[in-house]
C-alpha cells in the first residue's frame, strides 16, 4: 500500500520537475524561423544549387567525369581551334549536391550557390540549361576565347593548356600540388 502512494508521489514529482524545465522555456526566445519570410544565415561553404559561370567554362569535361551520378551533360562540336561548347546542362533530378564538380574545376567556373529552394512543375524543368540561348555556342580554344572576350584561366606554374582534361589519365599517386591548384 505504501508503495502505491510512493509511486504516485514519484510520478507526480518527477513530472513536475520536467514541467518546471518546460515552463522556463516560455520566457526564452523561440529558436524556430518562420521560413519563407525569415531565412537562415547560411555559411560560406553551404552547398546550394550549382552555379556555372559560362564566361569561364571552357568545356574541359572534368566536372562531368568527376560527377558520381553523371548529372552534368556537356555537348561540344568541332575540334581544336574550332571547338565550341553548345550545351551545358545539369540535371537536378540526379544531382546530389556533393560539390565534387566544383573541387575539380580548373577554371573555377563551377561554384555552389546559396539557393536551395527552387521549385518547378515538371521534372523536365529540373534540367537546367546554362548556355545562354541567345549566344548558342561558346568557344573552347584559348586563342578564340581571348579573341571573343571570354575569360581565360592563367596558370603560370603549369605549362599545359587549360583545356587539357587533367582527369583523363588518373595518376596512381595523384600529386598534391595538382589538387590544391584546382581547389584554390
Amino acid at each position: 500500500m505504501a508503495r502505491y502512494f510512493v509511486d504516485i508521489w514519484q510520478a507526480v514529482s518527477s513530472a513536475m520537475v520536467g514541467m518546471s524545465i518546460t515552463i522556463k522555456h516560455i520566457w526564452k526566445k523561440p529558436v524556430t524561423l518562420q521560413y519563407p519570410e525569415e531565412r537562415q544565415v547560411l555559411s560560406p561553404r553551404f552547398r546550394g544549387f550549382v552555379h556555372n559561370d559560362m564566361n569561364k567554362c571552357d568545356a574541359c569535361q572534368i566536372c562531368a567525369r568527376t560527377c558520381p551520378v553523371d548529372c552534368i551533360y556537356i555537348e561540344t562540336e568541332g575540334k581544336g581551334k574550332d571547338r565550341w561548347l553548345t550545351r551545358y546542362a545539369i540535371d537536378y533530378n540526379k544531382c546530389i549536391w556533393c560539390s565534387m564538380c566544383t573541387e575539380g574545376c580548373p577554371a573555377n567556373s563551377i561554384t555552389m550557390s546559396h539557393d536551395y529552394d527552387h521549385s518547378v512543375y515538371f521534372r523536365e524543368s529540373l534540367v537546367y540549361e546554362y548556355v545562354d540561348p541567345t549566344v548558342k555556342k561558346i568557344p573552347c580554344h584559348k586563342e578564340k576565347r581571348i579573341e571573343l572576350g571570354y575569360h581565360v584561366m592563367v596558370k603560370p606554374e603549369k605549362k599545359k593548356p587549360v583545356e587539357k582534361p587533367a582527369a583523363e589519365k588518373p595518376a596512381p599517386e595523384s600529386t598534391e600540388a595538382d589538387d590544391k591548384g584546382e581547389t584554390k
Binding site: T66, M100, E103, G104, A166, A167, P170, A171, P172, E173, S174, T175, E176, D178, D179, K180, E182, T183
Partner: peptide, 13 residues
C-alpha cells in the same frame, strides 16, 4: 598542418 594527403577528386588506383 595539411588536412588531406592525396587530393580531393582525382581517382586513385
Amino acid at each position: 598542418g595539411e588536412v588531406h594527403a592525396i587530393g580531393l577528386t582525382k581517382p586513385v588506383k
